[in-house]
């Protein structure tokens, strides 16, 4: 007698989100099963990978990482073009200059930069604020307008500033990253609040705030897993795809940065381990249900995509 494989019967699926326009538009989400269980459901899209650039030369990136972007670090337009050449699916522009401690650039200034980057590339754009909630709430009306019609992904919206960011997205046709720090209840609540402003659910991307390998990745993993299970069993307010800001976390890890300490000397060549740290963090969160990955090193992107290629082979 043939053995029949016991399959879960899921009743629902993730929203499918599209960023950008034209040929280079990127689609992710839409999964109707747990990650890569192709025999149980549909996984219509591959995860998308963005390379991260900043609008001012980063001060806290390790030299090894900066060396790879030499010559473009102070020029976001050139940097974006370079990232496109490296095979990024999207460009993630971080508007660090708006930070009160990093120049406190005005909304108009950062909007100009965002527009210049958007005009220089046909890749879809993710635009991230400086991380100060009040300031981000103040810059996105101008940034959203400057990018009108580009169907960009903007954020991160929090419980404090989602009003102005969602409004900017709705008026100018963008999508919004909803950020909740490792709190699934707040995540769901924020999605409700944003959809109550009439932002369609498929234009929201969840940022659960991930941790790097060795730095709390298991908390992000369990939250992502739980929200995916909720989504598949019909919880529409947890059914948005998830973005993982891997680069910003992985490159903070001691294992990725350390070149001097006696301990670090025993860990092998820094470049290799730093890239592996970024890739391992990504592949782990891919297994937890991430759909969009923001990375910093082009070599990490290459290795991660090779992994995706393998894991996407159907086991149905």
């Amino acid at each position: 007698m043939a053995v029949s494989i016991l399959k879960e019967r899921w009743t629902s699926k993730l929203y499918e989100t599209t960023i950008g326009t034209g040929d280079k538009a990127v689609k992710f989400g839409g999964d109707s099963t747990l990650p890569y269980l192709q025999f149980e459901g549909e996984i219509p899209n591959r995860p998308a990978v963005a390379l991260e650039i900043t609008d001012v030369e980063p001060t806290d990136w390790p030299d090894f990482l900066k060396a790879h972007w030499e010559g473009v670090l102070a020029d976001p337009v050139a940097w974006a073009k370079q990232a496109a050449e490296y095979g990024a699916d999207l460009i993630a522009l971080r508007l660090d200059s708006a930070h009160p401690d990093k120049g406190n650039a005005s909304a108009e200034d950062v909007a100009k930069t965002a527009k210049a980057v958007a005009d220089a590339t046909d890749l879809p754009l993710i635009v991230i604020g400086c991380g100060v909630e009040e300031k981000d709430g103040a810059i996105f009306p101008a940034v959203g307008e400057a990018l009108a019609g580009k169907n960009a992904l903007i954020g991160c919206a929090t419980q404090e500033n989602y009003n102005s960011i969602v409004a900017a997205a709705m008026v100018n046709g963008h999508n919004v990253i909803a950020s909740s720090p490792l709190d699934i209840n707040l995540c769901k609540q924020l999605n409700i609040l944003m959809t109550e402003m009439n932002l369609p659910a498929e234009r929201i991307v969840i940022d659960p705030l991930i941790g790097a390998l060795g730095y709390g990745i298991e908390y992000a993993y369990s939250i992502m897993e739980r929200s995916r299970l909720g989504a598949l069993t019909g919880d529409k307010m947890l059914a948005m795809p998830v973005v993982c800001f891997v680069g910003q976390e992985a490159w903070k890890a001691k294992e990725a940065k350390d070149v001097e300490s006696p301990e670090g000397q025993t860990w092998g060549e820094q470049g290799t381990r730093a890239i592996l740290w970024e890739v391992m963090t990504s592949t782990t969160l891919l297994q937890a249900g991430g759909s969009l990955f923001v990375m910093r090193h082009p070599e990490s992107l290459k290795k991660f995509k090779a992994h995706v290629e393998e894991i996407s082979k159907s086991n149905a």
Binding site: I184, N185, L186, K188, Q189, I192, L193, R226, S227, G230, G234, D235, K236, M237, L238
Partner: peptide
């Protein structure tokens, strides 16, 4: 059975 959020009553009705 359902993940908590402050608006859980409303979500239950909109499901």
């Amino acid at each position: 059975q359902s993940i908590y959020c402050d608006s859980y009553v409303k979500v239950f009705r909109q499901r």
